[in-house]
Design a protein around this nucleic acid. Sequence first.
DNA 1: CGTAATGTTGAGCGCATTCAAGCCGGGTGG
DNA 2: CCACCCGGCTTGAATGCGCTCAACATTACG
Lengths: 220, 220
Amino acid sequence: MPMGLSQEELNRIDEVIGTRRKIKRGATLFRNGEKFTSLYAIRTGFFKTRIASEDGRDQVTGFQMAGEVVGLDGIVNDHHSCDAVALEDAEVCVMPFDRIEEISREVNALQRHVHKIMSREIVREHGVMLLLGSMRAEERLATFLLNLVQRLHARGFSQSELVLRMTREEIGSFLGLKLETISRTFSRFVEEGIVEVKQRHVHIVNTEALRDIVNPKKSS
Amino acid sequence: MPMGLSQEELNRIDEVIGTRRKIKRGATLFRNGEKFTSLYAIRTGFFKTRIASEDGRDQVTGFQMAGEVVGLDGIVNDHHSCDAVALEDAEVCVMPFDRIEEISREVNALQRHVHKIMSREIVREHGVMLLLGSMRAEERLATFLLNLVQRLHARGFSQSELVLRMTREEIGSFLGLKLETISRTFSRFVEEGIVEVKQRHVHIVNTEALRDIVNPKKSS
DNA sequence: CGTAATGTTGAGCGCATTCAAGCCGGGTGG
DNA sequence: CCACCCGGCTTGAATGCGCTCAACATTACG
């Protein structure tokens, strides 16, 4: 949240927070088709969002962690258009959207904040489109790992150590690859000494090498 | 725009519209890195938005036509993070964003409208992610054609006739395919009598067949 | 402790890519 | 008006990356 707000403004902003809600691992926070009422700020835990095509295929559209907001997809049609599934026991702040709209009319900082959150999501998705549209398997996985560790680091975790909350299949769905390809690509990274992998525990040994994979260097 | 507004409200909303601006074919409305000031409502013409990765590859993130809004990417960081390029001579309404924020504090309908536009873009991108992440070439192109013709139809154009404003290469970039693949896939559709193609002029002969490609039927 | 879920690895295949050659159509200048 | 040129498009042949299918290993969990 931006700084420089009066106490009065801060109090008003607190009002957008309704109840809290706990979601068990594997349960959904909301599902495609459900009525949209609120945005959810993740307090603890880890989520994936996914959409399903008519014929059973589904696509993971993102992984969200503490401090991030889910539910923006529901605003257009007053109904959610994707599922949000907890990948571990989680807790969220329920923020009724009509309250958000009401208060953001009075508190400029909140209005600005809401706009930025939505715009940030649009920009994030642009990045995913670039990944899905033009990267090879190694680049996709390297990009994914760097993004994940960067977000975790911003929350006070290690820059080189991370525990995956999702399966290979979920990573694959997000990256537009099959789970076997994820597994093989991890193995290749391990062979090359770039990372160490023990199940879902990943230790990034050589961050620079990952960056080089994402951004193939034009060595003459 | 939603209905049921008072004259006063309508007048207020008109105030978000600043100047108009003409963009010649091939010129950019805004570029990655430029300061963000305004959203743009397309009055006439056709745009593509694209992002570029460090190493020259780029990804078309969308095609926009009359009535659609571009520039939402700029809100987060006060700078644009993609380019908007006119694919034909175009005209846009410049809508300074601080005016939008100001007036949407007073006019609920505008506030709601802005939120919906942003949410719609997020949902649209989810669909693109599904396409890029899990569809084969034929499905991608079929989806693309159906989406394009549906948007054109909503604007009063034919349901079966369309003129592509973009090159095969641009379609390919958007769909995560090479231009040769686009060309070949068009040829296959023609062979199968699904469409007729003469350069950029496309006549959809069999819409149902396209739908079947998008949504493989589970024939026993 | 046993069973199901998850992950690894191998072999062969297929779809989209790459590389290459040629075509078409529109615009320009002689 | 025609010759030329160039960007956009098409088509062919060969390659290769990621997928499919399959067997097996490992781990989580009731």
